[in-house]
Amino acid sequence: MSQDEAPVALDIEQLSVVFDTPDGPLSAVNDFALEIRRGECVGVVGESGAGKSQSFLAVMGLLAANARVSGQARLGTEPLIGRSIAELNQFRGVKLSMIFQDPMTSLTPHMTVGEQIAESIIHHLKISADAARARALALLEQVQVTDAPRRLDQYPHELSGGMRQRVMIAIALACDPEVLIADEPTTALDVTIQAQILALLAKLKRERGMAMALITHDLGVVAGIADRVAVMYAGRVVELGTVHEVLKAPKHPYTAALLASMPRIDDTGTGPLPAIGGQPPNPRRLPPGCAFGPRCERVDETCRAARPALTGHERRVACHHPLERP
């Protein structure tokens, strides 16, 4: 891969998100750091509550009102954190787009598909309604919506889930963004449609040279289209590397355990699928040492006393006792 030479499209540093709740502050993301280069797809994996979505919602400025965000995120050279809504709106939907998990509820029910795609084109690119409609039609064809001219005037409830997710993608791509954040884009869809949507995203990324963050809990999805992968646990990145390295030779015991708990088509074993014991930690009461410690087989006094830092350059891991190559 020659992505190292490509310029960084989205650079996130020391991003933290804390929610003020009636029961006190709840820390959802801690010191999240990630850079995504042009033309690169980075998979962000982790279980529910690991802070994957919250990190990127923070970048988009879409968090709930009770969230406090600190740290930095830059789109090219433009800082994003701490900017007003009006300032963010120069980038959102234009250079920085996001698609969401639930296509059934993420489209406005009372507006036609055409209106919803054309809307941001008219607003951001200042072109006529007719030209925007023509562009919306072209987008629908690019995202391989069948019978595109008719779809323009249909309402979201008249489309299937897969079709709606394609419309979401068309909306996100409407103004030709530099960075696309895809938050569990296939989770709500059935398996055959999942594969189609992933193939479509991979194709669009390649054709447009976009930087893409793919948030998912499914390592299989990551293996399919990502170049690099960041594994998150309890609000932190615990392992980072190319997909090949991380999936073939995980260094963090959590990544290894996640991989072991995935069913494999070539698996001939007959025993039960391994599961990770215990529960993810309560974000209000994180252990002082390694957050994965209580569930880890390799845990010792060092792990309980001090939280391991994310070390390494290209290949990073946050563990006192990383796994060696088998």
Partner: peptide
């Protein structure tokens, strides 16, 4: 709701 989040993600002014 989610569709309002989508509208915000589009970079539309809050009024709209």
């Amino acid at each position: 709701t989610n569709h309002v989040r989508t509208a915000r993600a589009k970079g539309l002014p809050e009024r709209r």
